[in-house]
Design a binder for these strands. Structure first.
Lengths: 230, 230
DNA sequence: ATCACCCCTATTATTGACAATAACCATGGC
DNA sequence: GCCATGGTTATTGTCAATAATAGGGGTGAT
């Protein structure tokens, strides 16, 4: 008899989930501003903070560098990445373009199955919003948009869209906490579902683009204020 | 006196370049078909083949997985990825969309500096083409398109475009060897430069999209033939 | 006083040994 | 004869010790 397999699903963190958890927590700490832009992310410190081995922390930093929210310099280390107003505008320009294209590709009127799915996701979103559960809000919100855009039929377009959603996470995060932005977002989601029942693709596309203006504008104001007082 | 620093630039592979070299060689072996789709990429084998440590091979596989030309399965290993006709069509749909948008954003007529730069790159391209230097052809070709699209002014759009250029590498590679495709490609490059001197953005955008049809069509025919005889 | 240089420390990069895992094969029970 | 079961091997995943590197502070020369 060997050392027994320790009962798989009881409480085993199972390595790969441990890795995912480190990534999630680090990502969360960055996008919610607990780790400010420019701050150095020293591997040893993060190892302590998350109780993970160097290997996992390293992988997480690579992954988040790829996602664009961490900057790594050879033999120097990682820092929380900061985006200038100019860069933000450029990033959103591409995101808006992809969004518009994807929206236009959704066949209208949408099938009931999609409507039902989105209503269900929207319900979850509202629950998390009411509970002020930041991570939950962010996850359900992204799930909603992902389900919506998946209806465009091109998984590669969806993947690119997702890349840009991840890239803009730091800009969108503040709004997930802001009750005004939250209420607006909620109404827009419901309007999207209504438009899916109709035939006006252009209206839908425009709404999807409008949907991201609030957080973009808010972020731009925020960073211009951060610069000035200094 | 310590063990001397071995004269930095004499013949030092300098680790980071060694890493890049492994990636390049592996990529090359895949896109030029020396490693067929579906083939298992065993780490130990690659370590031997490229004389690199496990770490570097690993990194290379991660990188190429991200690029989309390698498929990795947990605890199973990596294989050369294969794309179905349907996937190829979807990938090209997005690539064409991004290309068209980028082309339309280039301000016409283009400044002389850009024209000069492209002429120079085109000259290199022709040299490599005449020399039948596959890697050289591919590198100079991509450099040409990168310089062209960079003129759109949005580096993020260029980055996404580059992602799709990398993703379609296996489909484009065959054409880099094909003398007919090569000649067509050459003429189209020159036509692009001519259009940059004019004011017709739509003609330029259309030409850029047309430019990628030959290799796409060729690849689709190729894989449908591969399927049949079996 | 200033500049250049060197050592020292903080940090990341690399490596090879080792653990975990999954596929494979053979063997025995039914 | 066939399915289940256990062992074996091939392969990837993890780790912790070691090497390399860059930056900072102090020391000495000019």
């Amino acid at each position: 008899m060997k050392a027994e397999p320790t009962l798989p699903e009881l409480q085993a963190p199972s390595r790969e989930e441990e890795q995912a958890e480190v990534i999630r927590r680090l990502e969360e700490d960055i996008i919610f501003g607990r780790l400010a832009p420019g701050l150095r992310l020293v591997e040893d410190t993060l190892m302590q903070r998350y109780g993970a081995s160097r290997h996992f922390v390293r992988q997480a930093l690579f992954q988040l560098e790829r996602q664009g929210i961490v900057l790594r310099e050879k033999n120097v280390g990682a820092t929380v990445r900061f985006y200038s107003a100019e860069e933000v505008r450029q990033i959103y320009e591409v995101r808006e373009m992809l969004t518009r294209q994807a929206a236009l590709m959704i066949a209208l009127p949408a099938p009931d199955s999609l409507i039902d799915e989105l209503n269900e996701l929207q319900r979850h979103y509202c629950i998390k919003a009411d509970a002020q559960d930041m991570r939950g809000i962010h996850e359900t919100n992204d799930a909603f948009h992902l389900a919506l855009f998946s209806a465009c039929g091109n998984p590669y377009l969806v993947r690119s869209l997702q890349d840009y959603m991840n890239l803009t996470l730091p800009m969108r995060a503040k709004n997930l906490a802001d009750s005004e932005g939250l209420a607006l977002s909620r109404r827009q989601h419901e309007l999207m579902i209504e438009l899916l029942k109709g035939r006006d693709s252009w209206a839908l596309a425009q709404l999807c683009v409008d949907h991201m203006q609030y957080s973009k504008a808010d972020y731009l104001v925020r960073i211009s204020n951060d610069k000035k007082p200094q």
